[in-house]
Design a protein around this nucleic acid. Structure first.
Length: 207
DNA sequence: TGCCAGGCCCTCTTTAGGGCCTT
């Protein structure tokens, strides 16, 4: 879908579980989870395990709870990513530490000559500016810090995507209440995420 | 043989180093 047709009032929040940290070093995706936010509510979701064609390490099995046995019968990455491409078509994208998920999305899509039209925003960069007093900016810490109810398992793709989506909405609400901004655009949060921390207040005052 | 990420961001900075965050 051409870039100019990206829907401005919706966003997809996504999270990858992977075999490691770097697609450039041969790491692959093993699970994708995502939710669609429309008008402040989660209205759709996507979750699939995928077979990376290699064994995952004991560390990854322990870290994610995703075992080699679970992946043995999963669909190949290419099949899952083709379905995921349809799910995200036309939407802007959000992830916690988006540079990580963007690298894997780009790498998996590059293997199948697939592209996407949306822009990325990073909930980690935004949270570092909006919640400057949080103990740290790991997803789990921010979920507790913002009193988001949490009853699932972190480090599974759909749950992390859901928690990131709720964090994203909490950040929009926080800015809205503090600065009287109730028509926050995706691009404004992108710009906020590049503002020096000490200039965040002045930036939002001008909006 | 041994090693292996990358981007952001702060500071004791910019001719650099190291912590944070993601799996």
């Amino acid at each position: 879908m051409p870039k100019h047709s990206t829907q401005a009032d919706t966003v997809i929040v996504l999270d990858f579980e992977t075999t490691g940290l770097s697609p450039d070093m041969g790491d692959r995706a093993i699970e994708i989870g995502a939710v669609l936010i429309e008008q402040g509510e989660i209205t759709a979701s996507f979750q699939e395990l995928m077979n990376p064609g290699m064994k995952v390490s004991a560390f990854i099995e322990d870290y994610t709870g995703i075992t080699n046995t679970m992946l043995r019968d999963a669909a190949p990455c290419e099949d899952v990513m083709e379905r995921f491409s349809d799910f995200i078509a036309g939407h802007n994208l959000v992830a916690h530490n988006a540079s990580f998920d963007k690298r894997f999305l780009d790498a998996e899509f590059a293997r199948m000559s697939c592209a996407y039209s949306g822009d990325f925003a990073c909930s980690l960069l935004a949270a570092r500016r909006i919640f400057q007093n949080a103990p740290n900016h790991q997803l789990g810490t921010l979920v507790k810090y913002t009193n988001i109810p949490s009853v699932g398992s972190f480090h599974r793709a759909l749950y992390d995507a859901e928690m990131t989506a709720k964090l994203w909405m909490a950040m929009l609400e926080n800015i809205g209440e503090r600065y009287g901004l109730f028509d926050l655009s995706f691009s404004l949060i992108q710009k906020l995420s590049k503002v020096p921390k000490k200039s965040v207040h002045a930036f939002l005052e001008k909006c």
